[in-house]
């Protein structure tokens, strides 16, 4: 039959044409396309992997940040507490010091006042002694004729003197 007997001329032409087409396409056509598409697929694959990695890194970073924040907050609280304690301590110390100072000043003042008073008393006593000596002199000078009366007076004076100054 005509249909199923291959025509030799057509076989030769088909072989030539197909070989040429195959050569051209296999050299300049399909490898270019498939390699480029493969390149792009690889790139997409890599990019996806990189994106996943970055995401993971970001997640850990966020975690770390959170932890750092938490730590900072705790430290801040501790610092504030310390500062408050130090302040209180300082104030207390200052108060203590001031009190001590004040006490010291008061003590000094008291001592001084006491010394002043002693001085003043001593002065007064000396004056009294002088005055009494003057009085005595005058009394003696005026009324020394009456011996009985004089003796009486001397006694009285001595007694008074001793009574007013019992410690000396």
């Amino acid at each position: 039959m005509n249909l199923i007997t291959p025509d030799s001329g057509l076989v030769v032409w088909m072989t030539i044409i197909f070989a040429i087409v195959f050569f051209i396409l296999a050299k300049f056509g399909f490898p270019v396309i498939t390699s480029m598409v493969k390149k792009r697929n690889d790139k997409i694959h890599d990019s996806l992997a990189a994106a996943r990695l970055a995401e993971e890194k970001l997640a850990t970073l966020a975690q770390q940040q959170q932890e750092l924040l938490e730590k900072a907050r705790v430290e801040q609280a501790a610092l504030l507490k310390d500062a408050a304690a130090a302040r209180d301590n300082l104030i207390a110390q200052a108060k203590q010091q001031a009190k001590e100072e004040a006490d010291k000043i008061i003590q000094n003042a008291r001592l001084e006042i006491a010394a002043e008073r002693e001085d003043a008393l001593r002065d007064v006593r000396r004056q009294v002694a002088e005055i009494s000596l003057d009085v005595a002199e005058k009394v003696i000078r005026k009324t020394l004729q009456d011996t009985g009366e004089q003796a009486q007076l001397v006694d009285r004076l001595v007694e008074e003197a001793t009574r007013t100054r019992p410690e000396s």
Binding site: I20, V21, I24, L25, G29, F30
Partner: peptide, 15 residues
């Protein structure tokens, strides 16, 4: 074949 070669080579040229 000419059409085929042109089609594929033009496609390859784009890449």
């Amino acid at each position: 074949s000419l059409i085929l070669v042109l089609l594929i080579l033009l496609c390859a040229r784009w890449y």
